[in-house]
Design a binder for these strands. Structure first.
Lengths: 336, 336
DNA sequence: ATTGCGTTCTGTAACGTTACAGAATTGGAG
DNA sequence: CTCCAATTCTGTAACGTTACAGAACGCAAT
């Protein structure tokens, strides 16, 4: 016969439903998974009762039995300062995970050992998939995860002749469009304040910039030593110097809102008026630039879209999709 | 997706250690928990082997058996725009969780149903503790969690005659110090651009502001309709109007970096120079203000500390501490 | 000797789930 | 009527852990 009496007070389990329907636990389990060997009528009845008692599968039970964690892990470097990036990306990921059984867990790492969280996750099997930020051109985490068959997606491309899902902002297209914007406003001498040269997307940015400069027949104002990783006051000083130079540019393409702010600060110190004497274009991930200086031209980079896309790709890979089909280059103009 | 099963390739469990030591699984379990009924020598031997084989307890096993999830859930509103806040707080939390078995999972909610994630966590027992942001003076989530005996901590105080752990920035002290700063620079007519009045900390801010204004015998420039929730262009326009008023203030205390930027934009449009004609003080949670306008006076609000403190409080409550002892008001001057 | 007792260890069962092998019930086909 | 096969359901075992009730042992007190 069946089991003892059910108090009804506790969290409902398969057993509860089995008791209420008079079916076996196994049958209930199969029914809720819409298994083919269960009668349609029975399935419906089980589903009804399940909804009535508010059944929610116990994650620990599933995980113990099947090994499936229903967890996506976002690996974050806690030392990076990129403010808006993290929250927006997290929001995007949670959006993509909202109607799935997946949870998002944040796994931090310090620059002293970037491999640590990845190893932890693999060794303890604590996630079904991983999202990596701050991807490097040759990223050891990527090789490690591939070796251990753990699905993942990277924010930013790699350059190691290996295929995996990624999402990247189309910085080439950004730089091209930025120049185009400046050209449209009649600017002639343009400078580029790009990312640190060792990063892959510095190359993309430079390529788009140079292509546009050729296409629109503009003059490049060289700005070698300056990049986003420079300290605030240096960028600011650099802005002042640029502003005071006799052959100063009348347009600047900038790869981050932060450095744009620094430059603008310096340029204004030098007595220039943005929008009149010089135009500056920057990427913006949140709207705060508009709060202060609407004169700064902006092209959107949406990290929420990035998060959503990365999460979707990991899920797709988990479900067996071809990783080669999960690589997305998203430009300023496109919406996902 | 699955690799070949190699003999020593499996993840070690208690059974593995039991086999290696010749002990029973129970003994091994008790030994690793440093239980009193196990011989000291045995414990040491078990610990050694465990370390050797790299034993890590299986979370699903523990969770299924004991109900302990080792999860802290951070409940986030995905519609809020406060950029730096989230990432810094997340980092702070992960710091506090770093040397514990706890994981951080992000649970999002939309403004349309703030109770949803809290209910979910309680019903599915999916966390041992919860951290709540955007706390309201009378917060239904707080009552609900108290009712269901789930430990939690709130970012911001409540006003419902009920005791629970919280962490709050001392906005009264901030406003007082901000005025003091302006007074020290010889400013006489000060305006306050505070938080939306329905929020609890608007009251705190106003109190500190008014107290300082009395203490330093300054004149309040009234600024009724303006608060942080106003749209960007309105704040900007407001700044311009203030700047052009004949009785304009010579100092402004501002509750957020964003609105400070808007105001400064407007003031500069009106021809004022920050630091000469008028001084403006704002809270800053990241250093980006300094990137653009070093003339803006800033007082730090550290969300990383907030995250760390909140996480520590939740853990302490879980371990049985008195919630009344887990309430921290952190001012601009104090470090935790 | 027997009893009692503390110390140290052990086996069993259970948490909720699913894989698997098997059982009961149909409805035809022989 | 028997037999087969498809359909639908069931019980058992296992994932890794810990609570619990006990077992084996030495040792002291009766």
């Amino acid at each position: 016969m069946k089991t003892e009496t059910e108090p009804g007070d506790e969290r409902p389990t398969l057993k509860t439903i089995a008791f209420l329907t008079g079916l076996g636990v196994t049958t209930v389990s199969r029914a809720l998974k819409n298994g083919p060997e269960i009668g349609e009528e029975t399935k419906e009845r089980v589903r009804q009762i399940a909804k009535q008692v508010g059944y929610r599968p116990n994650r620990a039970g599933v995980r113990l039995r099947t090994g499936k964690t229903n967890v996506i892990s976002l690996i974050l470097n806690t030392e990076e300062g990129a403010m808006g990036l993290v929250s927006e990306m997290v929001y995007g990921i949670t959006e993509a995970l909202a109607d799935t059984p997946y949870h998002l867990v944040i796994t931090p790492y310090s620059l002293s050992d970037p491999m640590e969280p990845v190893r932890y996750i693999v060794e303890t099997q604590s996630a079904d998939g991983v999202i990596i930020s701050r991807t490097e051109p040759r990223d050891p985490r990527v090789s490690y995860l591939l070796e251990h068959n753990l699905p993942f997606a990277t924010h930013g491309r790699t350059d190691m002749g290996v295929v995996h899902p990624w999402h990247d902002y189309d910085n080439e297209s950004y730089a091209y469009n930025a120049v185009k914007l400046l050209a449209g406003r009649g600017r002639k001498r343009i400078a580029l304040s790009g990312p640190p040269p060792q990063l892959l997307y510095a190359r993309h940015t430079a390529r788009g910039f140079e292509r546009a400069m050729r296409d629109f027949k503009l003059e490049i104002f060289p700005l070698s030593a300056l990049n986003l990783d420079a300290p605030a006051d240096e960028i600011r000083r650099s802005g002042r110097e640029i502003g005071m130079a006799s052959d100063r540019p009348d347009g600047i393409v900038c790869s981050s809102a932060m450095s744009a702010l620094g430059l603008v600060g310096g340029l204004e110190e030098a007595g220039l008026k943005i929008g009149r004497d010089i135009d500056i274009v920057t990427k913006q991930s949140s709207s705060f630039i508009g709060w202060y200086k609407p004169e700064i031209l902006t092209i959107r980079e949406d990290f929420r879209i990035a998060g959503r896309d990365l999460a979707k790709s990991v899920l797709a890979w988990i479900e067996g999709a071809d990783p080669a089909s999960l690589q997305h280059l998203v430009g300023p103009e496109s919406a996902l």
